[in-house]
Design a protein around this nucleic acid. Structure first.
Lengths: 157, 157
DNA sequence: CTTTCATTGAGCATCCTGCACAGATAGACC
DNA sequence: GGTCTATCTGTGCAGGATGCTCAATGAAAG
C-alpha cells in the first residue's frame, strides 16, 4: 500500500504518456522490464491503479454544461434516492455528505436549457426535499492526481 | 464529433475491459481491425477520448477522506486564488461556479484531522473570504460515463 | 451516374507481451 | 556471522499484437 519513489515515477510516467508499454516504461525509468511489470501488477492488485479506462470528455459527447447539485433528502429515503439518481445518465457522480445538504451530485447537460430538464428529472422524486444547483463556468484545475502521487511518493522516502 | 452506435460500443468495451488491444476489440465488436483503429484515432483526435491515463485511487494512496469545499472569493482575486489552489496537491479539482459560492473544489486528506490542515492551507489565502466544507461519507455513484455514452450513441442513431 | 468515404481483408516487418530462469543484492532475523 | 526472504536484474523464447500499406467492396451523397 505504500508508494515508493519508483512507483511514483511510474505513475507519473503513465499519467503523461498513457500509451507507452511496459518495455518503453522500463527504458525511461532506467530499470528492468520485469521490475516495471511487477510494480504494475502490485499497484493494480493493491488498488492504487483502478484501471486504465478511457478518459471520456462529456463536452465532446455533446454535453458541454456541467453543474453540481446539492440535495436535501427526506429522512429514510436515502437508498431510494440513490437508486433513482443512479438511473439518470446525466448524473456522473454522487456523494453523500455532511453539511448543509445531504448529497452532492455532478450533472452534465446538452445546454443550459437542457440542464433544466436534467434537474427536473433529478429532483422529480419524492424523497428529495430541496436542491440547489451551481453551474460550472470554468474548470481551472481538471481532475488530477499527479501532484498527490508526487507527495505520497515523497512521504514514503 | 457525433458518436454512432459502433463508437458507443467501442467506448463501453474499452471502459469495461481497458487492457484489451485493438485486435481483440475488433474481434469482440465483429468488425475489421482497421475499423477499430480508425475509430479510435478519430475518437482521440476529436477529443472524445482524452487519454488512457491510469485511474488512481486516492484512498489506496493513503488519502481516504474526500471533501468538497465551496469558496467565496474577494472581487478581482480569482486568478490569484486559482494559482494558489493549483499549488495544493490535495486539491484534486477546481471549478468556478454560479450560485452561492464562487468556486467549488474537491479535496482529499489523510484523515479528518489532516483535512483540517488541508482546509487551513486552502483558505489561508487573502483572496478567500469564506469557505464551507462538506465531507464525503459515501460515494454511491463513482465517476462514470458509460450511461452517458450509451445515451449519446442512441441519440445519433 | 459518379464521387466520396468508410469498411474490409490481407500482408508485412517490427516490436511487445507474458512467462520463466538464474544470479545478484539488500534487509530482517536468530 | 549465517540464513531466509524479497526484490531487482538480465536474458531468452514463442506467440501475438501493432502500425502501416494496399486494392476491392459497399453505401451514401451529390
Amino acid at each position: 500500500m505504500a508508494i515508493d519513489q519508483l512507483d511514483g515515477r511510474l505513475l507519473r510516467l503513465l499519467a503523461e504518456q498513457p500509451r507507452i508499454g511496459v518495455l518503453e516504461a522500463s527504458r525511461r525509468l532506467g530499470v528492468a522490464r520485469g521490475t516495471v511489470q511487477a510494480r504494475l501488477d502490485r499497484l493494480q492488485s493493491t488498488g492504487v491503479i483502478r484501471g486504465f479506462g478511457p478518459d471520456v470528455d462529456p463536452k465532446a459527447l455533446g454535453y458541454p454544461v456541467t453543474a453540481f447539485a446539492t440535495l436535501e433528502i427526506k429522512q429514510g429515503q436515502g437508498a431510494d434516492v440513490r437508486t433513482h439518481l443512479a438511473g439518470v445518465p446525466e448524473v456522473l457522480e454522487l456523494h453523500t455528505t455532511t453539511g448543509h445538504g445531504d448529497m452532492l451530485c455532478r450533472l452534465v447537460a446538452r445546454s443550459n436549457a437542457d440542464l433544466q430538464r436534467v434537474i427536473d428529472r433529478v429532483v422529480g422524486f419524492e424523497g428529495i426535499v430541496r436542491a440547489s444547483t451551481a453551474i460550472v463556468m470554468e474548470n481551472p484545475v481538471p481532475l488530477r492526481v499527479v501532484p498527490l502521487v508526487r507527495q505520497a511518493a515523497a512521504a514514503e522516502g
